[in-house]
Each structure stands twice: as C-alpha cells, then as structure tokens.
C-alpha cells in the first residue's frame, strides 16, 4: 500500500537515501511507487493510495505499518505504528498459524 512520502525532499525532514518531493497528483505518486518498486525489486502487488490518503487514514497506517487481513473479513494482526513498531517477525508469528496446513 503505497502512501504519502514520509520524508519528502520538500518536507521538514527529508530522507537521506533518496530525494523524492511529495507527489502532488495521483499520477505522480503512482510514478514514484513504480520507481520504488523497481529500485527495491519488489515482487508483491502494489496499491497506490489516493491523494486524500483514504486507505492509510482508515487503517492509520502511515508512515509504515503491517497488518494481516483475515479471510473472514477481520483484522488478524495489527502491527505497531512504524518505523519503530514495524516488526516483520511479529507479523510472521501471527501469520504462520493462520496459513499452516490443517492437521
């Protein structure tokens, strides 16, 4: 879920590893998302949030966060807010029993 830039170059705390101005249109955000995906060699499908940050606000997902969405339509795992709370190991711990083959 690609969201608003957390450390845009035209913001008050620009990132050091890459210089990206805060996109002003959905097309700009989509282009940045595409370049990001290529740069990081991401293999997962990528959704791009609208310029109202609708999805990020619904989940309170900014700047970065992990969730597991259950097949039953309920939240199966809610990670803490990132970057400090971005815990892949905690997500995996929650996910494994959900996808383990039935005994």
């Amino acid at each position: 879920m690609y969201t608003r830039e957390a450390h845009a170059s035209d913001g008050h705390r620009p990132a050091r590893h890459v210089e990206i101005a805060q996109p002003k249109t959905w097309e700009e955000r989509t282009d940045v998302a595409k370049r990001c995906s290529a740069a990081l060699d991401l293999k997962i499908p990528q959704l791009v949030d609208d310029m109202k940050d609708t999805i990020a606000k619904a989940f309170h997902g900014m700047p970065d966060r992990l969730f597991v969405l259950g097949a039953d339509g309920k939240i199966a795992f809610r990670g803490e807010r990132g970057p400090r709370g971005f815990d892949v190991a905690a997500m995996e711990t929650a996910l494994k029993p959900l996808v383990a083959p039935a005994k």
Binding site: Y2, P63, L66, G70, L95
Partner: peptide, 25 residues
C-alpha cells in the same frame, strides 16, 4: 493495483493477506 485495471476491496480478502503500508522515503 498499480499497473492494472484491477480494484481490490480490502475488506473482502479471498485469503489471508499481508498489508504493508509505506513509501520510498
């Protein structure tokens, strides 16, 4: 979904789905 015409309803996943929020910066 970027690069497609597919729209995903997040509230109705067909299977357990990991949702990762983030940006390049």
């Amino acid at each position: 979904v970027r690069g497609t015409e597919q729209t995903v309803a997040l509230s109705k996943p067909k299977r357990h789905t990991v949702l990762v929020f983030g940006s390049w910066t």
